[in-house]
Amino acid sequence: MNIQSISQNATVYIYDSIESYLTNVFFIEHESKIFIIDTFCGSESMEPILNRVNSSLNNKEVVVINTHFHWDHVWGNCSFKDRNIISHEMCRELLNESWEMQINENKKYIMGIAEKHLPNITFKEKISFYNEGIELFHSPGHTADSISIFDHNDKILYVGDNLEKPIIYVENADISTYINTLENYLNYRPRKIVAGHTLDLTEQDILNTIEYLKGLSTGKEMYFESEYMREIHEKNLSVVNKG
């Protein structure tokens, strides 16, 4: 695991225990609140973050955010049983329905304990923490339940898995809605864009992803420079064609 500062208030914990990609957990600290974006793969993975929370001299309120229901973003929820965990209302439903399946399919990645613990606060469109300048909003794309977070003070946009390099994973066949979400990102005019598996994204990456999605939806023939990208593209095609 690697730890990096991404702003005066925000830190990213970068995990490399899953082969093929890195996974990011974000820690945003304000005067009275700490926001933790996603909880990775279990109690052991959250120990460094809990140690930091417990070392806070001001006993700050901790708010945990699940960007979507996928296992590599939620298995550490059990480390925050006494804290508020926020997600989209669909995330809670999908996580409840798919918990055992996701455990069975990916149990080798569990770090410590991964007990089922669902978000206890949900929303439909948007929820804001005005004093801290933190806005959570529904941003369907990678999955239908995906949410994003915008820090109005630092102008940082946290997009979950809606953006990823070198290529996105499409698990929701509603491509037009995905494109609308990406176009809406541009309205925030972020200074920095970070994602669940990729750091240092730009507005050009948003535009490139929109073009990819348009090509995906029309069956446009596209060239990819690596076997990995070709493999993911074929999977994305199958999702769109089934939809």
Rank of each mutant, 00 (worst) to 15 (best):
T11C: 00
A173F: 15
S43G: 04
F27Q: 00
M101Y: 14
F137M: 06
K60L: 04
R83E: 09
E47W: 04
F150P: 04
A144E: 15
P119V: 09
Q4V: 09
E100S: 15
Y178N: 09
N59H: 01
N208L: 15
G76H: 01
M90H: 12
Y188V: 10
Y185E: 05
C41W: 06
T11K: 01
D72C: 12
D174N: 14
Y15T: 02
F27R: 00
H88T: 03
P140N: 06
A144P: 07
N2A: 03
G76T: 00
S176E: 15
Y212F: 15
N66H: 01
S56Q: 00
G160T: 06
S32Y: 03
Q102K: 14
M46S: 04
G196A: 12
I127C: 07
Y169M: 13
D145P: 03
P166Y: 12
N131L: 12
K124R: 13
N77C: 04
I18D: 00
I167Q: 06
A173W: 14
V170R: 10
I36H: 02
D161T: 07
G133C: 11
F40K: 02
N66I: 04
E115K: 08
I3V: 13
T198F: 09
D145Y: 01
K192W: 13
L136E: 04
E44I: 03
N241A: 11
K116F: 14
L22N: 06
A114Q: 03
H30Q: 08
E61F: 02
L207T: 11
I65E: 08
E31H: 08
N162H: 11
I3A: 08
S55P: 02
L136A: 06
W71H: 09
E234T: 02
V25G: 00
I168E: 04
S148R: 03
L163H: 13
S56A: 01
I149Q: 04
F224L: 05
L199V: 12
N96R: 13
H88A: 05
P166G: 13
G133I: 09
R230V: 04
N54Q: 09
Y212M: 07
Q204H: 14
I28D: 03
I147G: 00
V240D: 03
N24I: 00
M1G: 11
M222C: 01
N59A: 00
K220M: 14
L50S: 01
Q204P: 08
P48Q: 03
H30M: 04
P119H: 07
T218P: 02
I210F: 11
N96Q: 14
C91E: 15
E203C: 15
L50E: 02
